[in-house]
């Protein structure tokens, strides 16, 4: 595993949207949260998981 730049940046963007939504839960923030932040977190998680999986495979753990 070399780096987690992409999942980190995706999650960072997700956190920004989530933070704004938490600060003022208006309809636009809610839409951004539901339609963008949550998929971003999903992408971050998948990308992170993929790296972890590859890392583990590389060390013959899996």
């Amino acid at each position: 595993m070399k780096d987690l730049r992409l999942p980190s940046l995706a999650a960072a963007l997700g956190f920004i949207i989530t933070g704004l939504y938490a600060l003022d839960p208006g309809p636009y923030q809610m839409a951004a949260f539901i339609f963008f932040a949550q998929p971003l977190f999903l992408i971050a998680l998948l990308s992170y998981g993929y790296r972890v999986w590859k890392d583990l495979r590389g060390r013959d753990v899996l």
């Binding site: 070399k2 780096d3 987690l4 730049r5 980190s8 940046l9 999650a11 960072a12 956190f15 920004i16 989530t18 933070g19 938490a22």
Partner: peptide
């Protein structure tokens, strides 16, 4: 979210 944002920005810079 603030904590997460900080951690992610930090993490993004780690090689």
């Amino acid at each position: 979210s603030v904590v997460g944002l900080g951690l992610c920005l930090w993490l993004a810079r780690v090689d």
